[in-house]
Structure formats: C-alpha cells, structure tokens
C-alpha cells in the first residue's frame, strides 16, 4: 500500500507518471464532454453486476459531478465529506439502482478541482481503501485533458475511451489518447463508440484512429487501440436519461442495453478475471 502513495521519480517525464496503476480499476473517460461517459459508466456497472461482479462507480469528475443526476441519487454524505474528514469512507458509499455501489463527489468537490498534493494523496488513499472490497472500480472521470482527469486516469489499469462518431468527438478522443500515451506510457486504450448510427462503424473508427496514431505518434512501444463495442442510437437511452432511470434496469433488452451487456462480456474476457 505504501508504494502506491510514494511516487517513484524514475520513469518518464511527468510527475503524474510514476503512480503505479492499481488492478481492477477502470477509468471511463472521453476527449469531449457530452458523449455519454456517465451513462456508459452507470450502465456498464449494472451489466457487470449481472455477470456476478461486485462493482463500485466513483464519480471522479471532482469539480463537475453528474453521476448523481443520472442515478437520481442525492445523498447527504458524499466524497466531499470524506475529503473534509466529516465522514468515513464507508458512510459515503451507497447502493445504486442496478445493484452496484456508488461514491458520489458532491457539489462541494468543486474546490478540489485544482489538483494539489493533498488532493492527490487523499484520492489515492480513498481508492486504495476501496480496491480490496470490489471486483471492479469504475472511475467516471471528467472529459479532456485537465490535470484532475489525467490523474484519475493514471490510477486505472485500463482506460475506456468513450467517443461518438462526430468529428469533434473523435478529434478530442485522438488528442486525449496522444496525451495518455505520452504522459502515462499507456500501450492500450479501449474504445467504446456511443451513439453509433450503423453497425460496424465503431470498428472502422477505431481502425482509423489507430492508423493516425501509428503515423503521427512516435513511441518506443506501439499503442494499441482495442475496440470494445458500439452502443447504437436508441430511443430507450433518451427515455431513461429523461426519466433519470438506469436503462440496464428498465429496458435491458433494448439495442443499447444489449450492446452494453456485450461490452461487459468483452471486458470479462480481456480485462477482469471472473470473480471467484
């Protein structure tokens, strides 16, 4: 546990690099906001629960939490109270619809959106405390390339990059992947294409991203993008979001629901060993 808290100043060039990634922690991130990161986090968590995993979703978008809105949960005790020492970690964890646990940031976390050493250490302490209790910890991070986002992502062993097929979203996803490769020496980034209009388009998009990376981003070891799946445009998604219900609970058999189950299955095969 101690080596997690002490950055080792050896490897490459930034202070954020030396943090040792933890097992079983997956970061859900995106280059651009509004692509459905939180929607994916919450529903993927529910899909993993159905596969028998014990899952916690942590709102790692410290300044701008919206997991509460998606889940329609407004708890009295949040991560903010843990940060300020007003509550214990276990008091802030609550059950979410869908059978997973959730740790919400709380609006007061805005003041922590500037990443000081204390915030980093506190964050590390919290995540180190959570990891032993869950099969999977999903970090619902903010979008883009701020220090807080990059730090949250650096804590994860795997990165799930959510993008929509829109050019702006893809450009920002590409830029973020470049930074993750440069700063954190990531060798694999897993891509989820949300709001896909046509089956197979995610595969083509991932392939295209890979080609541009291969050509423009020079690293010692090649970067590999892995396409995890497409979530199709689906009116049920909109319905669930508007009603503030969890789609995987209300209409798990809709096209988007099936796609998310499929992604959970792909994660089980490649990333998360089956719980015993």
């Amino acid at each position: 546990m101690n080596d997690l808290l002490t950055p080792t100043a050896d490897s490459q060039d930034t202070a954020k690099v030396p943090l040792k990634p933890l097992g079983k922690v997956l970061a859900v991130t995106s280059g651009k906001g509004g692509v459905g990161k939180t929607f994916v986090s919450a529903n993927l968590a529910a899909a993993l629960v159905k596969r028998g995993y014990k899952v916690l979703v942590l709102d790692a978008d410290l300044g701008l939490a919206n997991l509460d809105v998606v889940l329609n949960l407004y708890p009295k005790i949040t991560l903010h109270d843990v940060f300020t020492g007003k509550a214990k970690l276990e008091e802030a964890i609550l059950p979410a619809p869908g059978g997973f646990s959730v740790l919400l940031a709380g609006s007061g976390m805005v003041e922590y959106s500037r990443l000081t050493t204390e915030v980093r250490n506190e964050f590390l302490r919290i995540i180190s405390g959570l990891v032993p209790h869950y099969d999977v910890v999903l970090l619902d991070t903010g979008a883009g390339i701020s220090d807080v986002v990059l730090f949250a992502v650096s804590l994860a062993s795997e990165v799930l990059m959510v993008a929509t097929p829109e050019p702006t979203s893809l450009t920002d996803a590409y830029a973020t992947i470049k930074v993750l490769v440069g700063q954190q020496q990531r060798q694999t980034v897993r891509v989820i294409i949300n709001q896909s209009a046509r089956p197979g388009s995610g595969q083509a998009i991932t392939h295209q991203l890979q080609q541009v990376l291969d050509r423009f981003v020079v690293t010692e070891r090649p970067i590999r993008l892995i396409h995890m799946g497409d979530i199709p445009v689906d009116p049920e998604v909109r319905q669930a979001v508007m009603r503030r219900q969890l789609m995987m609970q209300t209409t798990p058999g809709c096209p988007a629901g099936l796609a998310i189950s499929h992604i959970a299955g792909a994660l089980e095969k490649s990333v998360i060993p089956k719980p015993t």
Binding site: L64, V70, R238, V241
Partner: peptide
C-alpha cells in the same frame, strides 16, 4: 439523445 438532459449538457 443526450442533449435534452440539461444536467448532462451543463456539466
């Protein structure tokens, strides 16, 4: 699909 959710947009 997400645009109607004001909270998501704001955030």
């Amino acid at each position: 699909p997400n645009a109607a959710d004001k909270a998501t947009n704001r955030v």
